[in-house]
Design a binder for these strands. Sequence first.
DNA 1: CCGGTGCAATGATCCAGGTCAATGCTGTTA
DNA 2: TAACAGCATTGACCTGGATCATTGCACCGG
Lengths: 255, 255
Amino acid sequence: MPSSLTAENTAGRPRRLVIAGMEGCTNCAICEVRAHGVCSALRDDELERLARAAVRMTVPPGHIFIEEGSRATDFFNVTGGTVKLFKSLPDGRRQITGFVSVGHFLGLAVSDRYAFGAEAIDQVKLCRFSRPKLEGMIEEFPRMERRLLAEAANELVTAQDQMLLLGRKTARERVASFLYGQLENHYGDAIPPNAQISFPMTRADIADFLGLTVETVSRTLSGLRKDGLVTLNAGHGITVISPVRLEAIARGGES
Amino acid sequence: MPSSLTAENTAGRPRRLVIAGMEGCTNCAICEVRAHGVCSALRDDELERLARAAVRMTVPPGHIFIEEGSRATDFFNVTGGTVKLFKSLPDGRRQITGFVSVGHFLGLAVSDRYAFGAEAIDQVKLCRFSRPKLEGMIEEFPRMERRLLAEAANELVTAQDQMLLLGRKTARERVASFLYGQLENHYGDAIPPNAQISFPMTRADIADFLGLTVETVSRTLSGLRKDGLVTLNAGHGITVISPVRLEAIARGGES
DNA sequence: CCGGTGCAATGATCCAGGTCAATGCTGTTA
DNA sequence: TAACAGCATTGACCTGGATCATTGCACCGG
């Protein structure tokens, strides 16, 4: 039975749902993520109304602000930091279904309960909307709904990629896919040789995202280093020497 | 490297995109799936307009009607039969990302290309809409967009469940999850003991859906039979003796 | 400067599920 | 009613990645 080494994080030291900072936000028009996220679909006068529905929050690293299976009372828009979304099994095995950062929307639920948990990786800033308020907004601003649908479609495509990864890729291909994905996040589609990336998540997070163990992630990264594909820098930094070869591996087109 | 035994299906005998039957549909109001699908969101007069945009199609078993990576020109609504959605790797490894049947919508794409392929498992009936036409419809009938968003949210939740399955569940848990899912499809949430199910997909399809090999699926089913949890009937029929215990296994709460 | 705490890396061993190879079963064509 | 084709099952064996154990390496507080 595969297990997750991060299990004891939850089992041993259950984290409370603590919200550190929370203040009203009166001006969405000057919001730092105006260009991204759901808000980008709105005109200035519409943002005015949005502002009244939104509450700004700051969540410290390691804290869970959406508890798996809890009542889905709110929607969130990430305005800073990185969040991991996850699902767990009763014995502590955990699957991270995605990492989301600035501009991303969070909280679509079918039933009245969240199907996943959300935990801050680093210092995370959020814009929170109550469910009824957001529903009112959607009713009023069709462009916002359009935007939501587009984001959902996007996430669906990402989810399908991840299913292919989890169901059929080797450890090496999974790690290469993860690294290449991080490259794309930073550089877009013009990735230079010797591209640098640094990400906030630990090996354990990466393992839980890729359906592997920490040890395998570590060994596989060492393998890529020995093969001259990457260098491992201080902190969580990595230099990808040949993004092209990395992508080939990620795609499953190379051993 | 894990491999998919269905690889030669594509490699050896590439299937052409053949559409067997195709006729105009003039009356969506009497459509057999009126109660399900996107159409259920519309009033009769709206259906009238929908009818003019829709084309009915029949696709024979085994035929691919959406080619992975091809131009996303159409949207489909499944009105009969079962479709498998899949993604593949260059060497033929394949992951089935979902089975969709009557009422389900199909074809949401981020870019202008489909990110997945779609193949008919049995005789499949479809309602086809051209992309621009559907976009017009959405513009005109906000309730249809609402419906689409709801379905996307639903699929997202299902996708997350599947990621947990593929990343962290054992073979036994995966097969139990699949069977239990089939039970839910047939019976809703009131599943009686000794519930019967029969599904159109082969062991190879199940394997590609669960990230396993045909052999492991076969052995695991035999294991469940030996443990008195199921009986394997003729054709693709299975009787689930104890749905409660099956669900416990599926949830990861039992060895 | 030292001891501690929390990752990360590496080594040794194990095993769940993959691979390879028959064998069975069922339906279909002749 | 035989011969074939296409799954499905079962067995024997192998291996990629999991498990268990140790060591290394920062960064922090005293």
